[in-house]
């Protein structure tokens, strides 16, 4: 909705028409948004997860368009390959039914809708207002594996190691949580 209003701004930048990358970006973005909307509105639980796959895959394409190649593949590997599989796993273990679940949405969906719309309006207004005249230079690849590796293991080593501790903690936590305690005889 706001995209249409934003597009003419391009002309002020000197381009008569938006570049190909921008068109692809907008189209994929619309797809991502649509998939995301379906994810949060569909009444079929597994469909929601599959729409999430679409949305996340679309985001990976957006990353590629933003020249963040490494991030894109990480996105595919972790999100599509692992997170969504876990989510599907969870859905199946909690016995997601085939077909429509009438109570997929809770009672405060209208409140949620109001809040979300208000937040969207606020954020979009702010963002558009703030970055009206900002352009990204996509001339060089910004997110190659090499570049990422270099910065990650040179400047971000300490957070990276901290993160590994976090992951270990999460691993232990998940194992402890899902362990079934032996029933008292």
């Amino acid at each position: 909705m706001n995209l249409a209003a934003v597009v003419p701004l391009d002309s002020t930048h000197g381009f008569l028409s938006p570049s190909g990358v921008e068109i692809v970006f907008v189209l994929v973005g619309l797809g991502v948004l649509g998939a995301a909307l379906l994810t949060v509105t569909t009444k079929q639980l597994v469909h929601a997860a599959l729409w999430l796959v679409v949305a996340l895959g679309g985001l990976a394409i957006e990353y590629l368009l933003l020249t963040a190649e490494f991030i894109a593949w990480v996105q595919v590997l972790i999100y599509v390959g692992a997170v969504v599989v876990l989510v599907l796993f969870g859905l199946m273990l909690t016995r997601a039914p085939i077909g429509v679940s009438p109570d997929a949405d809770s009672g405060n969906r209208w409140l949620a809708l109001g809040v979300a719309l208000a937040a969207a309006a606020t954020l979009v207004t702010l963002v558009v207002d703030a970055f009206r005249c900002t352009w990204i230079d996509l001339g060089t690849v910004a997110g190659s594996t090499k570049a990422n590796g270099v910065t990650l293991f040179r400047y971000w080593v300490l957070p990276f190691e901290a993160l590994s501790v976090l992951l270990l903690a999460a691993l232990v936590g998940a194992i402890v949580l899902s362990r079934r305690e032996k029933k008292e005889p």
């Binding site: 809770s106 405060n108 409140l111 949620a112 109001g114 809040v115 208000a118 937040a119 606020t122 702010l126």
Partner: peptide, 21 residues
């Protein structure tokens, strides 16, 4: 209802953001 709390929280944040802006 956790979601109710969250809704209120989010609404409050939005209102604060608008007010500040």
């Amino acid at each position: 209802n956790t979601q109710g709390y969250l809704s209120a929280l989010a609404a409050g944040v939005v209102v604060l953001a608008v007010v500040v802006a």
